[in-house]
């Protein structure tokens, strides 16, 4: 080991990174290009919905029109035809609201209490129960379709709004219960024990100790359920009955209606209107949305 005569000072610390290093430019270029793939459909949807039919027929799908019109939106909302009825998407919107609100409330109420029981009040076969729930959330809907037809028919609610609400609650429960169970088990057990020592009972602990600490998970659950139920198509078709079709079904019927001239601008306006509720939720809830899918997925 020869010692160097002179002490050479090497530069240390991270190199200053130029903003436009070739590697970085590549990364941004790729990110922006892929963004286009994701953004173009939204863009096309919007510009198509404000064109008149001539602009669609003689224009280019990617180029916005010079004189936008909101007539297609009005038509999509209140006049577009599905078969013989011409009442637009509006009834579907109200149906979707009256399906979504009770489904979300009932499923979250039941799931939060069940999750709480599973997490804090261990009972026999709890583990087994947990595993069945986990597997249950993956069972394809098709397996349960007919049994649920039988059950809702026996209950006398088949082909009503309540049938859809019931079905959404049943299918929402496994995943929501898991979500709540995982959250409640991650809370410090001392809180629960202290409350018990102080003499609080099952419900009191739930309402006064657990719930106030669980605002984030309730938010996540609401987002998950509202988007999921609003976007549902299959259950709406099968269980709701024609007068109660939710917005997604109504949209599909409008677009596929074969009468008259095909009005692509009205179709696109209807498509945006149907997507607008979950989109708004997504944009306003950003972080919670991401957390919802991450929690619902990775931990599940």
């Amino acid at each position: 080991m020869a010692k160097p005569d002179t002490l050479t000072i090497e530069p240390s610390g991270p190199l200053p990174r130029p903003m436009f290093a070739p590697g970085r430019v590549m990364i941004y270029a790729v990110l922006i290009l892929t963004s286009l793939y994701y953004l173009i459909p939204l863009y096309v949807m919007i510009i198509t919905s404000v064109k008149d039919l001539d602009a669609i027929r003689y224009g280019n799908i990617f180029i916005p029109t010079a004189n936008p019109t909101f007539a297609p939106w009005v038509k999509a909302w209140s006049e577009a035809c599905t078969g013989l009825k011409c009442s637009g998407l509006a009834p579907g919107f109200y149906n979707s609201v009256s399906i979504t609100v009770p489904s979300v409330i009932v499923s979250i109420a039941v799931a939060s209490v069940s999750g709480y029981s599973l997490a804090n009040w261990p009972f026999k076969f709890g583990e087994f129960f947990f595993t069945v729930l986990l597997v249950g959330s993956f069972v394809p809907y098709q397996v349960m379709l007919y049994p649920l037809v039988i059950i809702t028919r026996e209950m006398g609610i088949y082909s009503t709004l309540w049938a859809v609400v019931f079905v959404h609650t049943v299918f929402g429960l496994p995943i929501l219960t898991l979500l709540f169970r995982n959250y409640f088990s991650s809370l410090p057990p001392e809180l629960f024990k202290a409350a018990r020592v102080d003499g609080a009972g099952y419900w009191r602990i739930f309402f006064q100790v657990m719930m106030p600490m669980s605002v984030p998970i309730f938010t996540v659950a609401v987002i998950l359920q509202v988007t999921g139920i609003w976007n549902d198509f299959l259950f709406g078709v099968i269980y709701a009955g024609p007068t109660n079709y939710p917005m997604t079904v109504q949209l599909n019927n409008i677009v596929n209606s074969l009468q008259g001239v095909k009005e692509y601008n009205v179709d696109m306006a209807a498509t945006i209107l149907t997507g607008i509720v979950p989109l708004a939720i997504y944009f306003f809830s950003g972080k919670y949305f991401v957390r919802g899918i991450a929690a619902g997925a990775v931990k599940g």
Partner: peptide
């Protein structure tokens, strides 16, 4: 991530148009 918030029905109709 925003397309994930949209329903399959909406996705289907948009792409059918494009």
């Amino acid at each position: 991530l925003y397309p994930f918030a949209l329903s399959f029905i909406v996705t289907g109709h948009v792409w059918a148009w494009i």
